[in-house]
Amino acid sequence: MCVAMPGKVIRLDSGVAEVDFSGNRVRAQAGLVAVKPGDYVLVHAGCILQVISKQDRDSLADLFEEIEELC
């Protein structure tokens, strides 16, 4: 379940955001989390689920180090 895609908020108009996915503009509900234009967000079924904090937090090298520390 749960296909979700990262996109960029272009503008915000009374709780509805226009989100860009590589040149595709889609309207998405912004009622689940505070967003502002320029934010990268995760969209599922027409709703913004979360703002993506710096994408480099998913850096594989860092995650690898964290796992090694745990082990």
Binding site: V3, M5, F21, S22, G23, N24, V26, V43
Partner: peptide
């Protein structure tokens, strides 16, 4: 193309 790739992502 990037736009088609994005489009496919949205709709699976």
């Amino acid at each position: 193309s990037a736009p088609v790739s994005g489009f496919c992502g949205i709709l699976g």
